[in-house]
Design a protein around this nucleic acid. Structure first.
Lengths: 226, 226
DNA sequence: CCTTTAGGTTAAGCAACTGTTAAGCGTTGC
DNA sequence: GCAACGCTTAACAGTTGCTTAACCTAAAGG
């Protein structure tokens, strides 16, 4: 994973702290998003699917612990790295933090260089964790390793052919796949199936994932679009 | 075992010492957790199942010796590496330390490079000892050395094939293992067994460990999930 | 408009795969 | 040599997924 592909979400109610972190992370080439409270953070996280989330503990509306718990309850954040930001000596919270599934703690104040190297350490972890087996598009995640589709937090199990078909289409969102191309890639070059077979599978996908994602290009084939 | 998979728990009441160790270990890519006293350390250890635990001797609430004794009393920490941290010349404690099952001593102050190489030495020992001897997922620990599965503290003895199968699945929780993959890894490439053999073993595991842990992905294989 | 053509929909039958059970066989320990 | 155990297989049951056929609808082009 390139540094340029890494999305980091910062959630803190203090603008100073946000600016400090954002500035330093962006200087390193990370892609930084910010939110000022837990609720906002939660929404933004669902929207952008960040790789790392840094949560302040003390926040209005929804504190860090709660936000983390809610994030971890969603399958698409099961492998996201979540870190708490805490004032030095607030450590009482560490137990509670790890209990809701935090991966790390960062204590403030922290020096820029230490901060960055901390983030890099987290990143190494992220790379080790996730093979290349995950496709993310909008609020949809396809996890080849688990044979699972996650749509805005909900895990969906698909039968084999449907899953393969969906994987294929999602692998290049927006790109149109010709019918014959789909046949050869999902069914294989040898097997010969009737005309309606693809349609039926597309139909099932529309039923399970949502109508709008799969677009028909008449006379050509299908494409996936968010 | 990858560096990125190694979890180290540091327990010391002095924040400076914690920060020093944490910083240096993280720079190397280890996964570091910290606690400030024995009780907290104990709780955190149960939660995160670390591979190496570094305990300061002098701590409030529960000192290093006692913490170690309690850790060693739990089956899942029988093979965890536990190291004491001690001020130079506190040698009186060394005897007591080894008696409760410590694996090593680190004397402070210590230089970063020496510290790291010491940890690496421990790690080599961990690998040599057990050749990935322990797999931990949620409330399940797999102890390769003793051919034992510990589920929420209860030891379960499994026959060899069942154990190998379970080990394989648990080694990557959530990941789907194809039937042929299972066959080649558990039975070996040469032996040819019938189709139903895997199913029967899965069935026995479901019987002994619990139905919900083993999920069938039809047409593909099985996966382990907590 | 009407025709043509491609795609959508549905249910049914078939095929593929997995679950379950019991029995056979070899090994080990007593 | 008997009992207990582990591994594999066979037979059957149960389930799910895949494909097809028949019919319907929508879009495009004359």
């Amino acid at each position: 994973m390139e540094v340029n592909d890494v999305k980091i979400l910062l959630v803190d109610d203090e603008s100073d702290v946000l600016d400090f972190m954002k500035y330093n992370l962006e200087k390193e080439g990370f892609w930084v998003y910010t939110a000022q409270d837990g609720l906002e953070g939660l929404q933004l996280a669902k929207k952008i699917n960040p790789d790392i989330i840094i949560l302040d503990l003390m926040m209005p509306k929804l504190d860090g612990i709660e936000t983390c718990r809610e994030l971890r309850a969603l399958p698409e954040f099961k492998n996201t790295i979540i870190t708490f930001l805490t004032a030095r000596d607030e450590d009482y919270s560490q137990i509670a933090g790890f209990e809701v599934g935090a991966d790390d703690y960062i204590t403030k104040p922290i020096k820029p260089r230490v901060f960055i190297s901390r983030i890099r350490a987290l990143l190494r972890r992220l790379e080790a964790n996730s093979g290349d087996a995950k496709l993310k598009v909008g609020d949809i995640v396809i996890d080849r390793e688990r044979y699972m589709v996650v749509k805005s937090g909900v895990e969906i199990q698909l039968p084999r052919k449907e899953f393969e078909l969906m994987s294929l289409l999602v692998s290049k969102p927006g790109r149109v796949f010709k019918r014959e191309e789909i046949l050869s890639k999902v069914w294989g070059n040898e097997t010969i199936v009737g005309d309606r077979t693809i349609d039926v599978h597309i139909r099932k996908l529309r039923e399970k994932i949502g109508d709008d994602y799969f677009k028909t290009i008449k006379g050509i084939g299908y494409k996936f679009d968010a």
